[in-house]
């Protein structure tokens, strides 16, 4: 680890977000290096999605600062967004477009030059298992394939930071395995933030894990560290998040 200083791609300090009286995220710090996969764990309503929406510019933080690849998000949102690929909880698909049309549109939205779009399309479709699906209407695809189109959409412009909100929901075990392989592949040279409920998924894919509960990061460690201490992720998770379940976050 000492031979290279890994560049920091995502750095968020003290992110807070409230919705009126309700505080969804309070003081979250995130730091992510290139070539790292971060698993964001937490029970429903812990603030994972809100954090991700802030990191992708869909929500403005109430306070705190974010930098993506050295670009201040609040100062230059457009430049910062260009580094990010985002798959929300529900894949943002236009049902009336074909897969090719849709991916081309996303590529154009990310200001890719016309001649690079076709190459990017040919690159991304096999990676997401969409080889023969180019001409199919998105509305006719199964849930699993729609999810893959969603992932393809997030990586087509070759972003440095990939943010995936529960990417394996609704997939069958084989597809889950494929997607996990893909995430590991992507994580080799990029930064990936992955939110999930599935603990085994974190163990299979992530380098580092952070557990959120009631808007706070309550646990943060590398998986290697966990292994060294022979700690069980599931035990830690239930210990940290089961307590004061109904206390609420008001």
């Amino acid at each position: 680890m000492t031979e290279q200083v890994a560049s920091i791609t995502v750095s968020a300090q003290n992110l807070c977000r409230d919705f009126g009286k309700y505080v969804a995220v309070r003081g979250v710090n995130l730091e992510l290096k290139r070539g790292e996969v971060l698993g964001l764990l937490g029970p429903n309503g812990a603030g994972k999605t809100t954090t991700m929406r802030m990191l992708t510019g869909n929500l403005a933080p109430s306070s705190g600062s974010m930098e993506i690849c050295g670009v201040d998000f609040l100062d230059k949102p457009r430049e910062a967004k260009a580094f990010i690929g985002y798959l929300p909880e529900t894949p943002p698909l236009y049902q009336e477009m074909t897969v090719d049309e849709y991916l081309k549109f996303v590529a154009k939205l990310h200001r890719m030059a016309y001649h690079t779009i076709c190459a990017a399309l040919d690159n991304v479709k096999p990676r997401c298992g969409l080889d023969d699906m180019g001409k199919r209407l998105i509305s006719t695809l199964s849930k699993g394939y729609q999810q893959r189109v969603g992932i393809a959409q997030a990586i087509i412009h070759d972003p440095d930071v990939i943010i995936l909100d529960e990417p394996t929901v609704g997939l069958d075990p084989n597809q889950m395995r494929e997607i996990r392989t893909l995430i590991r592949e992507l994580g080799a040279v990029r930064s990936v933030i992955l939110s999930t409920h599935i603990l085994s998924e974190v163990e299979a894919v992530c380098d580092r894990v952070q557990i959120m509960h009631q808007g706070r990061i309550v646990f943060s460690d590398t998986l290697a560290g966990l292994k060294q201490r022979e700690a069980d992720l599931e035990e830690i998770f239930s210990q940290l998040t089961a307590s004061n379940e109904h206390a609420g976050s008001y």
């Binding site: 929406r53 992708t56 510019g57 869909n58 457009r78 430049e79 967004k81 260009a82 990010i84 985002y86 929300p88 909880e89 529900t90 894949p91 943002p92 698909l93 236009y94 049902q95 996303v106 939205l109 990310h110 200001r111 959409q153």
Partner: peptide, 14 residues
């Protein structure tokens, strides 16, 4: 309603 607005807002466009 179709959650596609997120796609547009996340993209580097104003």
């Amino acid at each position: 309603r179709n959650h596609t607005l997120i796609l547009l807002i996340s993209a580097p466009v104003t």
